[in-house]
Nucleic acid binder design. Sequence first.
DNA 1: GTGAAAGCGCTAACAC
DNA 2: GTGTTAGCGCTTTCAC
Lengths: 342, 342
Amino acid sequence: MESEPPAAKPPTILDVAKRAGVSKSTVSNVVRGIRSITPKTQLKVTRAIEELGYRPNILARQMVHQRTTIFGVVVGDLANPFYAEMAKQIERFAAARSYRVMFCNTQGEEAVEIAGLEGLLQQRVAGIVFLAYAGGSTRSRALLEGRMPAVFVTCSAEWGDVVCADDERGARHATEHLIGLGHERIAYCADPIVEDATDRARQAGYRQTMERAGLTPTVFHWERAEDRLLREAPVEQILTGPRRPTAFVSSNDLGAIDLLDCADRLAIPVPGKLSVVGFDDVVMAGLARINLTTIAQPKEMLARLAVDTLASRIEGHLNGDPIRQTVSCRLIIRGSTARPPR
Amino acid sequence: MESEPPAAKPPTILDVAKRAGVSKSTVSNVVRGIRSITPKTQLKVTRAIEELGYRPNILARQMVHQRTTIFGVVVGDLANPFYAEMAKQIERFAAARSYRVMFCNTQGEEAVEIAGLEGLLQQRVAGIVFLAYAGGSTRSRALLEGRMPAVFVTCSAEWGDVVCADDERGARHATEHLIGLGHERIAYCADPIVEDATDRARQAGYRQTMERAGLTPTVFHWERAEDRLLREAPVEQILTGPRRPTAFVSSNDLGAIDLLDCADRLAIPVPGKLSVVGFDDVVMAGLARINLTTIAQPKEMLARLAVDTLASRIEGHLNGDPIRQTVSCRLIIRGSTARPPR
DNA sequence: GTGAAAGCGCTAACAC
DNA sequence: GTGTTAGCGCTTTCAC
C-alpha cells in the first residue's frame, strides 16, 4: 500500500479501472470475487487497487442494494451489566459475519424505542436485534413487521424470531434450590427492567414450584423510581415486616444485588437470615463481595443464535414463520443462599 | 399516516413529487426544512408525504454527501462498566444531535482495533470517538489522520482532540487522602485496560505526592492473564509479603475491586488492615457491598464534550490544531479507606 | 471474459 | 418560489 497524498479524495472504481486499463465492471467483478476473470486481468486490477489504496465505497454499494450490512440493536440500558455483556457478544458475532452493529438505548421507554427504531429504519439497517422490547408497543410492530427481520433475545414477541433461555425452568431451579434448603416463605421479586414476557415466564416457574410444594407464592415489584430511597423504601418494609420472607427469587441479578444492598443496610445477614437467588449471572455476581447464587444464562450462546438467525433471515436462508429457540440455563450456587434461620 | 401495503417498496421522493404535483427538488426543499416555500406548496407536499408514509432514504443522501451521520466509537471492553457507562452517555448525546453510533470493541488489542477502524472507515463514519486507544498504534494514525476527525476520551494521542479528566490531580487527591489518614506504604496498582497515557498521568500524580511527602512510590502491574488465579497470584504475594503496603491507589475501579476481592479471599480486612482507592466511580463502586472510596470522573460531562467537539469538527465549526479539554474529578470517600493498622 | 449503459434516491447549482 | 439537470460510486443486466 502506497502512502496516498493525505486528504486527497479517495480513489473510485473508475480510477482503478483507468489505471488498470479495463472497464469499471471488470474492477467490480474482481472486487466482488466473481470468477471468470483472466488471471492476467485479475493481476492488473489487483495491482492498481493496491497502488491506489482503493477501498470500495460501501455507501454506493448500499445505495444499489437498498440495504446495509448493519444490525440495529435495541437495548434497554447499556449501563446494566447484563445488557452490556450481551451487547458485546452480539457485536462480536456480528463482526465475525462482517455485519456491524448500531446500538439504540431505550431506557425501557416506549417513546425512545420508537424514535430509535425510526432512526434505525432510516439508516436502512438490515435487521434488528431486540435485547429489550417495550412489549405493549403495537407501534414498533407496525413499524417493522413485514419490512425487516427482527429477533428478540431474552425477550419476546409473536411477530419475530425469539432466542431465549428456558426462563421458566430456570426459575424452577432457583425455587427448588431454596425449598431444598428448607425455606418456606419464599418471595419473587420483579425488576421492571426485565421484559414482561420474560418476567412472566420466570414468575410462572416460581409459582408452579411453590404451589407444587404446597407453599404460597408472593410477588413483589420494585418501584420504578429514579431515587434510590424511594425505590427501596417498600422493599425495606417487606424485609422488616412481620411475616417477612426468608428467601427471595429475583427476576435478575441487578435486582438481587439491590436486595443484598438493602439487607446490608438493615443489618440483616445474608445468607444467615435471608437467602437471595439472582438470574443472569453477570460478571459482578461472581465477585467475592457479592457472591450471589444465581441462574446463569448462556450469554454467548444466546448471542450466537441471535446473530445466526438474523443473518439467515437477511440472507434468505431462513424463511417462513417466526421460530423460537430456547437454551437451558443452570443454577450456580454461591454464598447468598443457605438454610433458613433457626 | 396511512397503512401502506406491507412489504411494498418504500416511496421515493419522486412518488411524493408526483402525488403533490411538484418537482422533486421542491419536495427535497420541504424535507430539508429550507424556507422560501409557499405555505400552500408546503402543505401539499407535507400531505403527500404523510399519505405515502415517505421517509427520506438516508443512504442516498449519504451517497451525495459522501459522508454519514454516524460516529464510530472504539471501546476497549463493553463488559467493563466504565466503558459501558461512557458508551451509553456517548450514544445519548450523539442521538440528541441526531448522530448515530457504531461501536467497535477492541479488547485492547491493536489488531482488532485496526480491523475495526477499517470497517468504520468503509462505512464512511463521520468521525471517531476513541474511548480506548492502543496508543503505540502508528497504523491507526496512518489510517485516520487528516481523513477524519477523531476525539480521544479518557485516553489520548497528539493527532486528535482530547477530552479527559484531570488524571494527575485526581491521583494526587487519592494519594493525599491516604497520606492524610496516616498511611506511608502506599502503592500504585496499574490495570492494563487503562490507556497508557492516562495511566502515566495518574501515576505521575501519585509519584509527585508521594515524593513531596518524603515517601517512596511503588508501582505494581496486574498480569494480563485471562485466568483469574494466574492474574491474582502476584498480587496475593504482595498483599501478604513482608513490607506490604497498607494502602493502594488503583488506576481504575475494576482493578480496585479485584484488589478487594483478593483481600477478602486472604481474609485481610478492608479498611482495617488495607485501604484501597479506586478511579472512575463506576456504579458498582457505590454498592453497599463494595463501598469503594474512589476518584469520580464526570462521565456525562466527558461524553458531552466529546460529542460536541466531534460534531463541531465534522460540521466545520471547529478547525485547526487539536484541542485538549480537561475536566476535574473529585474524591468520593466511602468505606474502603481508613487509618492504617496500629 | 469484458465493456457499455442504465439506474439506485437524493442533493445542489443553476435556470426560469 | 419552483423546476431542470448533473452527478455521488457502485452493481447489474445485456451486448459483444
